[in-house]
Simulated assay, not measured.
Amino acid sequence: MNGILFVGDPHGEFGPILKRAEAMLPDAIVLLGDQTPDRPLADVLGRWAERTWYILGNHDSDQEQYLVRHLDSMPDRNLNARVRPVAGVGIAGLGGVFRSQVWYPPGPPKWTGRAELVRYTKPALRFRSGPALQHWTSIFPEDVQALASLHADVLVTHEAPSTHRYGFEVLDDLAWDMGVRFVVHGHHHEPCYEAELLGGIHVVGLGKGEMMEWRQG
């Protein structure tokens, strides 16, 4: 097994990722959000698209085309709110960020799910019959609830758990509920750090464009 390549916020810079992939030959690549691709994601990744999974970051809804280049190109590779077997490892994903218009823990949510928000969103502001563009990358309580009842080995998030000074304890709770051994996140554009949650759950935060090779064991 050659392992999994986790990648922090590419922000459109895929050359280093592809170069690293050709050297490492990973079994899978997992992108931690803020891809902001300038072409359909599958085209950008080329032969590595069939081995790549992703979650969305807050900047992936800055422009409609960023979102379209994920959803129309590789819709089945979005890990958000589900668990998938990736190179023999159960990986769960929670994309997006907490926003006060939806839910900003530890405060109570304003909306529990997307369908509820959509009903109160003017049709002209909806994107593809869903919420407004920005809220395609907002975290809803229904996402966390969907994951909490599942089991995974690894949880990938865009937001950070409480190991980061701007992190959220609700993600600690989610990791414990799911029984994961490892959490990896992006978003903060700071140098890579490692920490542990209670229960020995290992956490790694990856900065902008940072990559980490991970092997189970």
Rank of each mutant, 00 (worst) to 15 (best):
A115I: 02
E116N: 05
E116T: 12
E116K: 11
E116G: 10
L117E: 06
R119K: 14
R119A: 12
R119Y: 04
R119F: 06
R119H: 05
P123A: 01
A124K: 06
A124W: 07
L125I: 02
R126I: 00
F127H: 06
F127V: 01
S129L: 11
S129G: 09
S129P: 05
G130L: 01
G130Q: 03
A132W: 01
L133M: 02
L133G: 02
L133Y: 05
Q134G: 10
H135W: 15
T137W: 09
S138V: 02
S138F: 01
S138D: 05
S138A: 05
I139Q: 03
F140C: 07
F140A: 10
P141D: 07
P141F: 02
E142D: 15
E142R: 11
D143E: 09
D143S: 09
D143P: 04
D143H: 15
Q145H: 12
A146K: 14
A148P: 14
S149R: 15
H151Y: 11
H151R: 15
D153R: 03
D153G: 04
L155T: 06
V156G: 00
V156P: 04
H158Q: 11
H158N: 08
E159F: 08
E159S: 13
P161V: 04
P161E: 00
P161F: 07
P161R: 06
S162W: 09
R165F: 14
R165G: 11
R165Q: 15
G167S: 08
G167K: 10
G167Q: 01
F168G: 12
F168I: 14
F168Y: 15
E169N: 10
E169A: 12
V170Q: 06
V170H: 08
V170A: 06
L171N: 10
L171F: 11
L171W: 11
L171Y: 12
D172H: 06
D173Y: 15
D173N: 15
D173K: 15
L174T: 09
L174N: 14
L174M: 15
A175G: 05
M178T: 05
V180T: 03
F182E: 01
V183T: 04
V183S: 00
H185I: 12
H185Q: 13
G186L: 08
H187D: 13
H187V: 14
H188R: 14
H188S: 09
H189I: 04
H189F: 07
H189N: 11
P191A: 04
P191H: 13
C192F: 11
C192D: 07
Y193S: 00
E194D: 08
E194I: 05
A195I: 08
A195S: 11
E196N: 10
L197R: 07
L197A: 05
L197V: 02
L198C: 11
L198P: 14
L198A: 13
G199R: 08
G199Q: 09
G200Y: 03
I201S: 04
H202Q: 03
H202D: 06
V203C: 03
V203E: 01
